[in-house]
Nucleic acid binder design. Structure first.
Lengths: 338, 338
DNA sequence: AATGAAAATACAATCGATTGTATTTATTAG
DNA sequence: CTAATAAATACAATCGATTGTATTTTCATT
């Protein structure tokens, strides 16, 4: 049929109407009479016209696009956050570009570069586990594009963070194990350069302290909490002999540890009770089902997006951290059934 | 510090060198002496210059970007496919825009429009369950941008599809149930406007026929195979009394049915054996573990991306479907333990 | 030192849409 | 019917980078 490369100039020529009028008509400007608008829209459809956003965005210096950086989309928690982000973004006329850092800081850097050169209007980011410096975020601020952190809060210039109170959630989780009789609780912790994991560890330690339990550095693991890490830590625990509780900073590691321990005939929760974090779908399916912390994932995506859009619209907006509620879901892995 | 809005013209003025030379220097063209290149790169860094891809892409009429449409990123199968896509794309210098249709054809349309107006160089798509017409894909072909289907193959003009042999996989799955003694096997099927689900049903029917089992239309369910659908179908099955096998076209529905049946004290696999499709992570964790079909997800993403990039580079390329191998993973839900 | 080729750089148009200003056309009032 | 105003449309510059062509500079050669 047609070459499919129609521009406003093609419409302009075909109708002998100036391209500025065509542009205004396509944007439904009141400066164009409804008669000419109709003519132009008809011709546009006829030629299969499709606006060229590149040109438009270049001229207006706005892309109506939000960049989202997520460590890994396959994590259930993150994909729910993304759903919340997309819903809110689309509702406000923004498009979303989703990028995975895969917990790799170099990849994160490249992504930031790319989003910047594509001139996204703002960025939602959950930093990678490797990220300890924020240098690569600065060019963004210099361009005046706002950044909002979600899930993993960051103390970076005037940027908002949207997260739960990790200290408190962690404290509750540990307290729960203690009140169920655990005396020797290990902690599966994440990289301590990430405030989130630092706060989770602090909450764990605070609970031990409150209940007068001994704090043992050897009980504090620190790694990326992958499935494999879970198995490695489970093996270590078996060597320790006296461990009777695990508080893991994510479900991934808690679940693989649980499976490993079960395969070694460790009774859960009788011998070792386990609490995870995130409420992954698997946590409710595995046997015994896993006690864990549920976060308002979808809501977190919505809040973060709203905060970002507010800042895009008014860059002078002052910002403060947004803290959402989390809840402890008690299941079989931490509770002796009656 | 600086305003962060540096363009090649700012560099050009600062050094009194024409912007065309600056552009060439930044692109490492041999037409610029290494001495000037050095000066320009230094000044660029100093000014915090960041290329404006909008301008560049507008001029060159190329975005080096691939659009990916996925029904739902939270499905493990799809997030693995995406990993394969990203790896291959980045390796070849392409960026990736990931979009979720959420199985909604209207959303799919909007996404296609958006990708087109952003002039992506090509699209990888797994159509939504609601998609039955390909009208909304045509503008793309008219613009000369290639489309490659993955997972859910489509017969659309000169477009490649990358998938497994769904008929064969389905046949094997059903045959497996039959050889384990099942006589009354129901099928959890997806929308029949999708070739993938049609082929899975055909494979199921073919196996029944080969082994002389009665084909019963009431045994063939058809819906979107959600978690909820799984429960609804499980309830129906209990009413039927005589069902002794389920072959589900995805794990999601198989798993929720399994859980429901278990809660009703149905013995699996003794009373009812179950086979799913996709090898979701949960399938190996649930008890009894679920027999399922594993697809080469990551590989599928890689193959589809390579095919797309080949076509972007040479639009005249003739195309043919790419079929990958799948495998039946036998677990406890279909096999009586010795 | 003059010549010519090669190397380096400058000029200018272009991609497609937007937008402030100017001009034309239509409408209303006196 | 004309002047004044409003409505509709046209003109032209612009966003930032790219690229074919033209011009200048450099350098080797005679």
């Amino acid at each position: 049929m047609n070459s499919g490369k129609a521009t406003i100039h093609d419409i302009s020529k075909a109708l002998n109407i100036d391209s500025s009028t065509v542009s205004r008509a396509l944007n439904n400007s009141p400066r164009v009479s409804s008669k000419t608008k109709a003519k132009i829209l008809t011709k546009a459809a006829e030629l299969g016209y499709q606006r060229n956003s590149l040109a438009s965005n270049l001229r207006t210096n706005k892309t109506n696009t939000i960049g989202v950086i997520v460590p890994r989309i396959s994590r259930s928690f993150f994909s729910s956050v993304i759903s919340g982000i997309e819903e809110t973004a689309y509702k406000n006329g923004y498009n979303v570009i989703i990028c995975q850092s895969l917990e790799d800081v170099n990849r994160e850097k490249k992504i930031m570069d790319n989003l910047l050169s594509n001139r996204v209007d703002g960025v939602l980011i959950s930093i990678s586990m490797q990220t300890s410096s924020y240098e690569h975020l600065k060019p963004f601020r210099n361009h005046g594009a706002p950044i909002v952190f979600y899930d993993r809060p960051c103390n970076f210039e005037g940027c908002t963070s949207v997260s739960i109170d990790d200290f408190e959630a962690s404290f509750k989780a540990t307290e729960h194990l203690i009140s169920n009789g655990c005396k020797n609780i290990v902690h599966f912790g994440g990289p301590q350069n990430i405030a989130l994991y630092k706060n989770r560890k602090k909450g764990y330690l605070a609970a031990l302290e409150k209940y007068g339990l001994e704090i043992n550095e050897i009980f504090c693991f620190e790694n990326e909490l992958s499935e494999n890490d879970g198995v490695i830590m489970a093996k270590e625990i078996l060597k320790m002999k006296n461990v009777d509780g695990i508080y893991a900073a994510n479900d991934t590691s808690a679940i693989s540890a649980l499976q490993y321990l079960k395969s070694k005939d460790v009774k859960i929760p009788e011998d070792i009770a386990i609490v995870g974090f995130n409420n992954d779908p698997i946590s409710s399916v595995i046997e015994p089902s896993l006690t864990t912390i549920n976060q308002p994932d979808f809501e977190m995506g919505r809040m973060a997006t709203n905060a970002l859009i507010d800042q895009i619209k008014d860059t002078s907006l002052s910002v403060r951290p947004i803290v959402l509620k989390s809840e402890l879901i008690v299941r079989s892995s931490s509770k002796v059934m009656p």
